[in-house]
Design a protein around this nucleic acid. Structure first.
Length: 279
DNA sequence: AACGGAGCCAACCGCCACCTG
DNA sequence: TCAGGTGGCGGTTGGCTCCGT
């Protein structure tokens, strides 16, 4: 937080805008103005509400703090999971993530990601190296590997999974996570609307089709059995096999093609990731 | 009780896109 | 077409709070 910076108008020819923390008086002025007049040009809002703030500052204060529809309070486990899921698809597009989480602001989600989840990813990253080291060690036994994995909680595993996805590879240690601890097995997946019978695994991870390697594969929304699209690490469509069904323009992003809102509203995610094999 | 480090989070900054004249 | 204004966004900062020593 920043110290309130009060500019002395009397000592300046040009009125200097105030910066820093908002006082309760300022909040109530802005709130009152917004309730009475609604949102207009933000520089006018600042002027007409009698605030020595720039329009941008007013906008931010309203959006992040004063807006009546804000939820406030800690993120629920369900929200955490949603954020992780959305982030895996949308990346750092916080406003888009926030738009899909009513009552939450982009700033809030960004802060939460940067403080809590990122930390968790790092923790998991370290932990999975341990798994990797122990399993690749000539002396490592199956049971030791299993023990390490089972000490990791589900969220950590998901976090690590997403982290590795972002980096464009799969840490081989993850493929050693016993099935019982693997969050991406069938129990956590539902099938694509067109594909109730999708092949559920590839080396312990959920995949569309075991024949397809070397990218992230996902099924078209309207498709026939065996159709797939391949996306690069930025989720851009780079390759497709649609058996003549409606093609997706090359370079289109996955989230532009899929109806994310519909996708995320399902009780269980219908992602079908398939990762390139480590060489 | 005092201190210091870590974490949290409100708010700023800089950039970009869009609109308007 | 261009320039200036505005809004929106993601990255970053830095002050406050909490917690351990």
């Amino acid at each position: 937080m920043r110290k309130p910076e009060v500019a002395s108008a009397a000592t300046h020819q040009v009125k200097k805008m105030k910066k820093g923390l908002w006082s309760p008086e300022e909040d109530s002025k802005l709130m009152q103005y917004m309730i009475n007049n609604g949102q207009g040009c933000w520089s006018d809002v600042a002027k007409n509400a009698g605030l020595q703030r720039c329009g941008k500052s007013c906008r931010l204060r309203w959006i992040n703090y004063l807006r009546p529809d804000l939820k406030r309070g800690a993120f629920s486990p369900q929200e955490e999971e949603l954020i992780i899921r959305f982030h895996s698809i949308l990346g750092n597009r916080w406003s888009q993530i926030a738009a899909r989480m009513p009552g939450r602001t982009d700033n809030e989600i960004k802060n939460f990601w940067n403080s809590t989840i990122k930390k968790r990813l790092k923790k998991m990253s370290d932990a999975s190296s341990l798994v990797n080291n122990s399993s690749s060690s000539p002396n490592a036994s199956d049971s030791s590997s299993n023990n390490t994995s089972s000490s990791l909680d589900l969220k950590d595993i998901i976090g690590s999974f997403m982290s590795f996805q972002e980096q464009g590879f799969v840490n081989p240690s993850l493929t050693n996570i016993p099935t019982s601890n693997n969050p991406f097995q069938a129990a956590h997946m539902i099938s694509h609307p067109c594909h109730d019978d999708y092949t559920p695994y590839v080396d312990g991870f959920y995949g569309v089709n075991t024949r397809l390697q070397g990218g992230i594969y996902f099924p078209p929304l309207e498709c026939e059995e065996g159709d797939w699209y391949k996306a690069d690490i930025n989720n851009h469509v780079v390759e497709m096999n649609t058996n003549g069904a409606g093609n997706v323009p090359e370079g289109m992003r996955m989230e532009e093609y899929w109806d994310l809102d519909q996708l995320m509203s399902t009780e269980v995610p219908s992602f079908h990731f398939n990762f390139k094999q480590n060489t």
